[in-house]
Design a protein around this nucleic acid. Structure first.
Lengths: 123, 123
DNA sequence: CCATGTCCTGGCCACCCGGCCAGTTTCGCA
DNA sequence: TGCGAAACTGGCCGGGTGGCCAGGACATGG
């Protein structure tokens, strides 16, 4: 093997739609310099396609709610968020309440999970 | 459009490593039946490759801890988790405590976020 | 000018959470 | 056979969380 300048790029597939996965697998199997990962093999990159029907409408969050949400995702308590943003704990609770409402969540943990799922925040 | 048997599959690239992104773009641009997404275009699938140096060691979680963690990610309270798993709230707290410890988290929200980041769970 | 929306604040309160103490059982492994 | 790891349970308690009430400031736009 020595100096194979065109080292293969290993790709893995994580696609919900079996038909799409199949078509891609066929197409990609014929590309030189590229290979699909064997089961358990570590890939250089992953082809993902999650069910798109999940995020039709994006949530309308105010800037302040996004601020609070971001800090929540870092595991900050209401008190820490209040200090960070220079506002009172009551106000933080107010925004958290709005977030739980808009994100249809039962608690702050659920809220960041939902937000992450919908791409509102990046973990 | 009726029956275009060779409907193009649109792929988008989200790759941290510019070199890898380049090589892939070149390779894929020559594949028939496949096309890279234009900026802003909605792709059928995405090729992702995040910095791998982020997850060297995976966390050793027991089966029970994984059970609890999964329910936590659903926003379940300790009481709900207890009911779901048929154990006492005290035991749930016990496992949650271990999770906070192992995941180096300050609270359940932080724990879920960390676990998701490390790929321990899927949101 | 007033309605609406966002942001901000306060008090009150039931409940939840996480950390501390303690203990039991069951399992596999040395 | 003893020993540790995992799982499970209990009580206690300070602090956090979320829901409810109420209010004020400020900007946008009808």
């Amino acid at each position: 093997m020595s100096e194979d300048k065109t080292a293969e790029i290993v790709l893995s597939l994580e696609i919900d739609d079996p038909a799409l996965a199949d078509r891609l697998a066929v197409l990609l199997s014929n590309v030189a310099g590229l290979r699909l990962a064997a089961p358990g093999e570590t890939a250089a990159a992953t082809i993902v396609a999650r069910d798109p029907r999940i995020m039709p409408e994006d949530i309308a969050l105010t800037q302040r709610e996004l601020d609070v949400l971001a800090l929540m995702a870092e595991g900050a308590s209401n008190k820490m968020i209040a200090r960070q943003l220079g506002i009172s704990v009551h106000t933080v609770k107010f925004h958290v309440g709005s977030l739980l409402d808009k994100l249809d969540a039962t608690g702050r943990t659920d809220a960041v999970a939902h937000a992450a799922r919908r791409g509102v925040i990046e973990l």
